[in-house]
Amino acid sequence: MFTRLVPHPILSLTLLLVWLGLVNTFTLGNLLLGALFGLVIPMLTAPYWPNRPTIARPLKIAEYMLVVLWDIVVANVQVAAIILFKREPDIRSQWITVPLELTSAEAITVLAGTITMTPGTVSATLAADGSAILVHCLHTDDPDDVRTEIKTRYERRLLEIFP
């Protein structure tokens, strides 16, 4: 009964918080309206997202976000240096295949988004059986290094969050 009424508790909570953030003033009316959105929207969209993802270590999410934010800053500087100071023929772009241990669709989506948001790498597509992800790398001399970094920094942490 609870699962039927609230198919995605995290989505409901996010919608409530986003609504309160959008109106930017906290009143009882806004709280009730946000709660209504948080109840109705997940119910209407439940057919398109049937399985509820399990999140094992919620505290690890904060750690993951901090790691990704830090990496975005570092990688931004690296890529800016490549764009500004490398001559165009010297930029060696490569395709990199990263085999995946993650199985949950939500976790793979988060990983693909992380790879794209970190400058220098863009996730292009998945293998048809979801066992690997294809990454385009702007400039690297050592593809194995990039693969290891994606696997140890991001995938290992996501495996702990989404078992």
């Binding site: 395709w95 990199i96 295949t97 085999p99 693909a112 794209t116 863009v122 996730s123 292009a124 597509t125 998945l126 293998a127 048809a128 059986d129 066992s131 690997a132 294809l134 385009h136």
Partner: peptide, 29 residues
């Protein structure tokens, strides 16, 4: 970014231009 990459792949690249995935199935494009 993913949409642009996929559109580029299906218009301009063939299977042989990309490294093969480690599993037995090819890229989903």
């Amino acid at each position: 970014a993913n949409f642009i990459a996929k559109a580029y792949m299906s218009r301009n690249l063939r299977k042989g231009d990309l490294p093969d995935p480690p599993g037995e199935y090819g890229w989903s494009v």
